[in-house]
């Protein structure tokens, strides 16, 4: 048996002739948290749906928890917790009724105890009679998470679980996810937040349906070949205007009172920056490129097949 909870190769999916997921291969080791990143419309949700049997791939194959993603879809559903991007529990049922429903669907033997525990664990006990539709965004997310871990899945697929959630709740959310992973659960979580990506054991980056990078945060940054220079200045906007478009400078990004200038070709970049080095108003330093810079660079390099 494989020691990967997710092991898929060459997944393809198109809608109406438009390829949305192209040749995607992902492996996630058991007990790991894998962040799934990519711009809007890059195919994250579609990939996750392929993994849990909600969509059938046009081609490609693989396993989730050792089960074939096409042939054993029903068996996979029993062991996977899928949290949808859009809230998809019943708004006209109360929190407890929703959890009861889910517990029944999975045929939980000790339903009451399981629901009770989930309510406690996520701090929903005091709100259990409230209708799900009346909950605020953050509370809906908590409820959705509670619902998808109710049946003690071995693999969690979370699609932007923290979108619209406040920082404190977000932190608690991640602590919960780490606790679950410590219990042996494998998690694939899509997100647009860089800080969340950095909390993951590994990340996968997808753009235009293609997987562009995979590995730990450090290795993704390391293998990107991106070089970043930081310029601290009193007037970053004026400097940015002058730097923009110079050869070798692929990205010029403002960070408060500083600019981050990045590119793949260090020599060309330094040649372009040389005239500014002598300016006493600018303090230059060399920094690690941020994950965000790497992603934006990756996206810029990738070809949109439609353009």
């Amino acid at each position: 048996m494989t020691d990967h909870a997710i092991d898929v190769r060459g997944l393809n999916k198109s809608f109406g002739g438009r390829p949305v997921v192209r040749d995607v291969s992902i492996r996630v080791a058991k007990g790991r948290i894998c962040g799934f990143l990519g711009p809007n419309g890059s195919g994250k949700t579609t990939t996750i749906r392929l993994l849990c049997g909600l969509l059938t791939p046009d081609s490609g194959s693989g396993t989730c928890l050792g089960l074939d993603i096409v042939r054993d879809a029903p068996a996979i559903k029993r062991q996977v917790g899928y949290m949808t991007q859009k809230f998809s529990l019943y708004e006209d049922l109360s929190i407890r009724e929703n959890l009861d429903f889910v517990a029944r669907m999975y045929g939980m033997a000790n339903r009451r105890a399981v629901v009770e525990e989930a309510l406690e664990r996520l701090g929903l006990a005091t709100r259990q009679r409230q209708l799900a539709g009346a909950l605020s965004g953050g509370w809906k997310q908590r409820l959705a998470l509670a619902a998808c871990i109710l049946h003690r899945p071995r693999l969690l697929l979370l699609d932007e679980p923290t979108a619209g959630v406040d920082p404190k709740a977000r932190r608690e959310f991640w602590e919960e996810i780490h606790r679950l992973a410590a219990d042996g659960l494998t998690v694939l979580v899509s997100t647009h937040y860089m800080d969340e990506a950095e909390r993951c054991h590994a990340i996968a980056y997808i753009a235009y349906g293609r997987l562009l990078a995979e590995g730990t945060v450090e290795s993704v940054i390391g293998t990107s070949g991106l070089v970043t220079r930081r310029a601290a200045t009193a007037e970053p906007d004026a400097l940015a205007a002058r730097l923009e478009g110079l050869p070798g400078l692929e990205m010029v990004v403002r960070f408060g009172g500083a600019l981050h200038v990045s590119g793949h070709d260090a020599a060309a970049m330094d040649a372009s920056l040389a005239p500014f080095r002598g300016d006493p108003a600018i303090r230059w330093s060399e920094v690690e490129p941020g994950l965000e810079d790497v992603f934006i660079a990756l996206m810029a390099q990738a070809q949109d097949p439609l353009q």
């Binding site: 909600l54 068996a75 029993r78 899928y82 949808t84 998809s88 529990l89 019943y90 669907m105």
Partner: peptide, 9 residues
């Protein structure tokens, strides 16, 4: 809610 329903066995 269909998506959640279909995701369940």
């Amino acid at each position: 809610t269909m998506e959640n329903l279909l995701a369940m066995p």
